[in-house]
Amino acid sequence: MAALYGEVSWFCCGNSWGPCGTVGKGACGTCNSGSRQHAWPNTSAACLTITRPDRCGETLARRTCGHVHTTTNRCTGKAIATSIADCGPQTDLFCGERTCCGSVCGSNRVIDLTPSAYSAIGSLSTGLLPAMIT
């Protein structure tokens, strides 16, 4: 797949503590905050009707549970390979949002990593990073 540019964020899943406790194991039934996994906005037709990346002009390929993407933090070049475990993020809620790092910017939330995956390429306290996804 050609490289996709956008914003990466993180989300918790599995039976974790706090408000995360109600989120569950995700659309694939395998999601855990401690595993190298991610959520993808087009895991199924039903998923796409919720996330609607098309409303932000993003055309994302259909990729199902277990598919591996590599997300590169464009601030640092740190990269991580993760597998799909959930549907998300809801891209259309923040169409046009931009996150920058120096002169490098990413627009639209196109991928959500688990805390374990996100913290390998950035700080959880930042919440959003410009990213390249392959």
């Binding site: 855990n32 401690g34 591996v68 390979a81 993760t82 390998a120």
Partner: peptide, 28 residues
């Protein structure tokens, strides 16, 4: 491997604290 638990990461709640060590119980 992608999808696997990351050994360099811990998620959970703190159940004990000593001078420099935290004891944590994960959700699993």
């Amino acid at each position: 491997n992608p999808g696997d638990p990351d050994p360099n990461f811990v998620e959970g709640r703190i159940t004990g604290i000593t001078d420099t060590v935290l004891f944590v119980t994960s959700s699993d």
